[in-house]
Amino acid sequence: MVLTMAVRIGEERRRPSRRTVLRAALGSAAGAVSLAACDGPRSEAQQLPAPDPLNPFYHDTAALLGRYDAAIATQPALAERLGPIRDAHRTHLEALAREIGPGLDTAAATSPGPGPGEPSSLAALSAAEQAASAAAREACLRAPSYRAALLGSIAAARASHVAALS
């Protein structure tokens, strides 16, 4: 019973690898001896964490932030209006990085932002926010409970950006 609880908590927080579940099952079925037997250094080394499902969302957030950086750089007159929205996206990015933790895929984080031809008009930014809000809403609906509030607030913030840009 205790073991069942431990595995369920693992699912909630980290989504255990198949190997973790298998080891737990072996442990309960065959006892501590067989658990120790398959717990050598080699199996530890192979136990890579599954990629965090929030990684693509994190990188899309970084791209959205990049669009605001580009828009403010090319249209300084819009800085006062766009600055707080840009800062919100940066705050979201930092919160997502903390949420993902060691599972953050930093290799893809160096991907370049939008190209110079990316439209940065208010209408284009508003359309991007609309799509990004819908994506965050979907992510919230699919998320485990402990991530629902963060993603819901990000969806709401992006929708409010659409209102602020209109």
């Binding site: 707080p84 800062d87 919100a88 705050t91 607030s153 913030a157 409010s160 950006h161 209102a163 602020a164």
Partner: peptide, 9 residues
């Protein structure tokens, strides 16, 4: 600004 970073928090 008219927005907040984390509505509802």
């Amino acid at each position: 600004p008219p927005t907040v970073p984390f509505p509802g928090r």
